[in-house]
Each structure stands twice: as structure tokens, then as C-alpha cells.
């Protein structure tokens, strides 16, 4: 080889080395791996916190395990007008163990083609100062994309009926059946003037009725027999409105539809059992959706007490209106939703 070739090749190599040494400088700004993950975490946070999910009505959280496929998008917000206000029933379903699996979270909340790993947690602050942490996903590795959203959680209202003279009918003939009715007027409850964050909506939230002091309605006895709990509906827009009994599987116990507790003991809606202290009924939205109610319907929940052929033992009788005057709304609870993606 000649000196000429050596000189030429050296110049070439020197230039090549200079160019190669410039390349890492070119890539310097790109070394952060958090870029993409933060964006995905932000997007997931927005979907969870600002969106009620799809389908909206009937809400997605009403689907059971068999109909999980019908859920297209998981969102926790009460409605699209109320970002950051989450519905407790949606939250419960979202974090329910064994309901959603990894691929559901990926396809219905995180989206995207890449199977991201995730850790989603919600820390709820209770008024008594305690915290309740709900979490799903894998433990956090270093270097994940992250977003934190501050939220409020709407809990369902609970109608607590204590000792109340309005429902204590002592003048009634002792042979007549005692009927205690809890009446829900959907037209009043779903009044559009009321913001969705402060609404009692039996279509999305459970209806809670608790008679705490049943003993006060037992003037001379220790207990009385609750014969049945039945549901009746009326459509006031019809020409001759009247209550009709809703066909329902009253004698099968199904905790997905309702929970009836007599003195803390679970039973079906035809208990024919004696009760001494408390009666508590939780009517889940899954049951309400079977009743085919619209925004004008009136729903009656009738508790019938019957001790015949003996004289009636309870004096509980009358109609309790499940409305904004009688049922106190639970205050919104603050919470923090964190989404980590990697």
C-alpha cells in the first residue's frame, strides 16, 4: 500500500470518528423513557375520572360476570357533566376482586396496542380520619408514568327510620294487616334542576331502607311477623293511574338484586318471620332495572306485617316518602386516584 492510500484512509476515518461522536449528542434529549408512559397514565386518569363509562344507561357497572363483554369503556364519574366526582357503586365494581381481569383493564380503561403494566389505586378519606385504600395491578417498578387526580366520591343515600309517630298507627283495628310503604317518586328524585352530584338515582345507586327501632312499633309484644316485601309501580301519565304489583322472583334470595336483613339475618322477600329490632332492605340497581321504570314512575316498596289469625302485634303503618326531605344525602368524600403505567 502506498502513502497516498494511508493518508486518504486516515482522513476518512478521522471524519467518520468525528461524525459518530456527534450522534449520541443527537440522541441525548430522547433518553427519557417516561415520555410515553406519562401520557398513557394521563389519558387513563382522564377516562377514569371524567367519564361515566359506556354504556351509560343501563350503566356498565350493572353488568354481571356473564355480561362483562358488553362493557366497552370503564369510567367512574357520576356523569359527564361532573368531572372528578365518582360514583361509589362504579368504584366498588372497578376494584371488585375477580370481576375485571388484566386484559379488561387494558382494553377498557388504558387502551392502546401495547400491553402496559399498571397500578391503579384510590385512597378514600373517611370523615372519621381513617383512610380506605383500594388498589389493583402490579407492584411499582422504578421509572413509571404517573398521574394523580383528586376526586370526591358520591355514596348512596340511606333512609334511616327510627321511632316516628307518623308511622306509628295505634288506632288501627287489630285484625287489619299492617302495611308500611316506602314510596319513591322518580319524577321528583330525577328532577333535572338538581345536579347529578347531589341526586338520588335508584337506577344507578342502591336504595337503602333501614328501620332501626322496630321495637318502638311493638307496643305490647316483643316481635311481629313480617309476611312479605313487595314492589308496586304506578305510571301517573297513564289515563287511569293505579299501582300494579311488579312480577319479581320474591322467594329467591339473590344478593346481586337485593339484601333483606331481619335482625341482622338475611332472608328472601317472603320471610314470614318474626322480627324484633331492625329491618334493613338494600335494593340494588340491577333489580330496579328489571322493574322497567321511567322518569315518571312511582315505585312502592310495601312491607306487610301479618300475625293473623292472632291480633296484629305491630303498629307500624303508613307511607314513608323516599325523597330529598326525608332521606339525607351522604356528604361527598374526598379521595385520590393514582394511575401508574409502565
Amino acid at each position: 500500500m502506498s502513502l497516498d492510500f494511508l493518508a486518504g484512509f486516515t482522513i476518512f476515518m478521522l471524519a467518520l470518528i468525528m461524525v459518530v461522536s456527534m450522534v449520541p449528542g443527537l440522541l441525548a434529549g430522547l433518553e427519557s423513557s417516561g415520555i410515553d408512559y406519562d401520557a398513557v397514565a394521563y389519558r387513563t386518569g382522564v377516562i377514569l375520572v371524567e367519564d361515566p363509562g359506556w354504556p351509560v344507561y343501563p350503566p356498565w357497572e350493572m353488568n354481571d360476570l356473564a355480561h362483562k363483554g358488553e362493557i366497552e369503556r370503564i369510567g367512574l364519574a357520576v356523569s359527564k357533566e361532573t368531572p372528578n366526582i365518582l360514583l361509589s357503586t362504579k368504584v366498588k365494581k372497578f376494584f371488585e376482586e375477580g370481576f375485571f381481569d388484566q386484559s379488561d383493564y387494558r382494553n377498557k380503561a388504558i387502551f392502546g396496542d401495547i400491553p402496559y403494566s399498571y397500578n391503579i389505586s384510590l385512597n378514600i378519606s373517611h370523615p372519621d380520619g381513617s383512610y380506605e385504600l383500594k388498589r389493583t395491578g402490579d407492584p411499582l417498578p422504578p421509572g413509571y408514568g404517573y398521574i394523580r387526580r383528586v376526586v370526591k366520591i358520591k355514596e348512596p343515600a340511606v333512609a334511616v327510620i327510627g321511632s316516628d309517630s307518623r308511622y306509628n298507627d295505634t288506632t288501627l283495628n287489630s285484625s287489619i294487616l299492617r302495611t308500611f310503604t316506602v314510596q319513591l317518586n322518580f319524577n321528583e328524585l330525577l328532577d333535572p334542576e338538581r345536579g347529578p352530584a347531589y341526586r338520588i338515582d335508584p337506577r344507578t345507586e342502591p336504595v337503602n331502607v333501614t328501620i332501626t327501632d322496630f321495637g318502638a312499633y311493638l307496643p305490647a309484644n316483643d316481635e311481629a311477623t313480617l309476611q312479605s316485601v313487595t314492589f308496586w309501580k304506578m305510571d301517573p301519565t297513564r289515563p287511569i293511574p293505579q299501582f300494579t304489583r311488579i312480577p319479581f322472583s320474591y322467594d329467591t334470595e339473590d344478593s346481586d338484586l337485593y339484601i333483606l336483613l331481619l335482625d341482622e339475618e338475611s332472608c328472601n322477600l317472603k320471610p314470614e318471620k318474626e322480627v324484633a329490632n331492625t329491618i334493613s332492605l338494600v335494593l340494588k340497581p340491577a333489580a330496579t332495572s328489571l322493574f322497567t321504570l321511567d322518569q315518571n314512575s312511582i315505585l312502592d316498596i310495601r312491607f306487610v306485617f301479618d300475625d293473623s289469625p292472632d291480633p296484629q302485634r305491630t303498629t307500624l303503618n303508613g307511607t314513608y316518602l323516599y325523597d330529598y326531605d326525608n332521606v339525607p344525602l351522604s356528604p361527598l368524600k374526598p379521595g385520590v386516584l393514582e394511575v401508574a403505567i409502565w
Partner: peptide, 25 residues
């Protein structure tokens, strides 16, 4: 000639690198 080609190749590479860096940074 070898030297000339070496210089030409070096100029091409350096010019490209300069243009690339000045546009992406």
C-alpha cells in the same frame, strides 16, 4: 487520488452531520 477521495468523503459526512444536528437540536 486516495487522499482526494478521503477528503471528499470526510467533507460529505461532516456536512451531513452538521446539517442533521442543526435541524434536529
Amino acid at each position: 487520488l486516495y487522499t482526494m477521495e478521503g477528503v471528499a468523503a470526510g467533507v460529505i459526512m461532516l456536512l451531513t452531520a452538521y446539517i442533521v444536528i442543526s435541524t434536529t437540536s
